[in-house]
Amino acid sequence: MILTEQEFIRCAQRNKDEAFAYLTDAYAQKVYGSCLQMLRNTEDAEDLVQEVFTSIYLSLDSFGGKSKLSTWIYAVTQNKAKEFLRNKNRLKRKGSLTVLDEYSEGFSGATINFNHPGVQLEDKEKAQVLFRAIDSLAENQAEAFRLAKIEGYSYAEIAEMMELSVSSIESLLFRANKRLRIILGDFYNKSRS
């Protein structure tokens, strides 16, 4: 059962716990997928998804229905992920060990120590190259590509999440696809020379 934003608000006013149960059933899977994509670490994603839902539960009253539920949840997820990464980086800097940030080395096609649970076994290596290439895209292109191609959101949903028009998303994705092919082509040539 899919509730409209207004039905959801009425439900939340009547019974907050019932509204939260609806959100959990409808969005936990998607939020977990987004967390995995943003953090590229299964344990961190599991922690983050709980933080996101705690934050959602505590701020349920503040949802006024101005945006779509999915957009609001994505915004909460994105903010929490940024906060999580900031804290993690701060801890890394404070630590006595120097931890090399694998994402700061640029695209080399080297394997990332992350196995996306949604990737089929035969695609594991290719997926790692793809993720590396996506990370090399401009931030907004990478985000649009991720949301459309990996997380399966519609263009309209992405437009609302990224606060852009649908045509902007289309052109962003067109550029992302083009750039992705250039990056992969460079890697292909370098790896064979």
């Binding site: 899977q29 539960y57 695609d123 290719k126 191609k149």
Partner: peptide
């Protein structure tokens, strides 16, 4: 080769959230 790599994105499934994590989320209230 490029198309082969890009086409992986179409085969990535939404990952299943672990049951214990889902249970913990449901216990948040």
């Amino acid at each position: 080769w490029i198309e082969d790599i890009v086409s992986v994105s179409e085969r990535i499934k939404t990952p299943e959230i672990p049951m214990d994590v889902l249970q913990r989320i449901k216990q948040i209230p």
